[in-house]
Amino acid sequence: MIINFHWGQLTGGPYYQVELGRLDGRVTSKANVKHNLPGPGYNLDQLNAVFAANGLTQTDMIALSGAHTIGVTHCDKFIRRIYRFKQPLAFNPPMNLTFLRQMRQICPLNYNPSTFAMLDPTTPFKFDNAYYQNLQKEMGLLASDQILFTDQRSRGLVNWFASNQTAFEEAFVAAMTKLGRVGVKNATEGEIRRVCTAVN
């Protein structure tokens, strides 16, 4: 069974058919979720490893990263990227100087934990390919975003998506469909939760 879905209906994203029938897991674990999500300081090899473990390719990973065209992240996820600390990041891709200064205004060293910044500073409420254009300008807020352009192995696809909105949307839909098929559970492994945030 499938339904038509408009990704980010209020933000102009693409329509596509979502496959139905997934069951919820019987275990809720913050640690398990964290283990399966890439970190904000991941390099390309680490990003690829996380996605490959779920049967997704580098192209899928780059396309799904484009979801950062909308949304926010809190200061703690990038504070070490915009200031020099005694224990610096293992790697820190370059950042546009004007953008760096803007981020320091939003997140000073004594930032409020609830403070956040837009992942896409140019069109934060529109689902488009500006995310990739920002990477070309060294305006990727997370190191794991900017590395997609900094690393030569992924730069070509970033440039392609930056120049072609349709190509990005098609790749995003294909990757989202594949992602929806990861870890599908059978009737003994899963359930239909009455409350999304808790097992029955």
Results as ranks from 00 to 15, higher is better:
53 A>T: 01
78 F>K: 11
77 K>T: 08
52 A>H: 11
149 F>I: 03
36 N>T: 00
24 D>I: 08
64 L>Y: 04
5 F>L: 15
97 L>F: 07
37 L>A: 00
183 G>I: 08
139 M>Q: 08
104 R>C: 06
138 E>R: 14
123 T>M: 13
52 A>P: 03
77 K>R: 07
121 P>W: 04
197 T>H: 02
36 N>I: 07
29 S>E: 09
62 I>P: 01
36 N>W: 10
45 D>N: 05
92 N>R: 09
103 M>W: 09
3 I>E: 07
73 T>W: 00
162 A>F: 10
100 L>G: 13
190 G>E: 03
153 R>N: 14
23 L>P: 02
2 I>K: 15
138 E>N: 15
167 A>G: 14
45 D>Y: 12
115 T>C: 00
124 P>M: 08
110 N>K: 05
90 A>L: 02
110 N>Y: 11
152 Q>M: 14
83 Y>T: 12
168 F>E: 04
66 G>W: 01
56 L>V: 02
193 R>K: 14
109 L>V: 07
140 G>H: 03
115 T>K: 14
101 R>G: 01
22 R>N: 02
126 K>I: 08
147 I>P: 08
57 T>H: 04
8 G>F: 12
175 A>Q: 03
13 G>L: 06
150 T>D: 03
126 K>Q: 00
143 A>D: 10
188 T>F: 10
148 L>T: 03
20 L>K: 08
10 L>G: 12
148 L>F: 02
91 F>H: 12
181 R>V: 04
186 N>P: 07
108 P>S: 10
3 I>S: 07
6 H>Q: 15
42 Y>W: 12
196 C>Y: 15
150 T>P: 02
165 Q>V: 03
110 N>R: 04
3 I>K: 09
99 F>G: 00
89 L>Y: 10
50 V>D: 01
1 M>T: 15
34 K>C: 07
173 V>C: 01
156 G>E: 01
131 Y>P: 02
83 Y>I: 11
196 C>H: 13
166 T>F: 14
154 S>H: 03
15 Y>R: 12
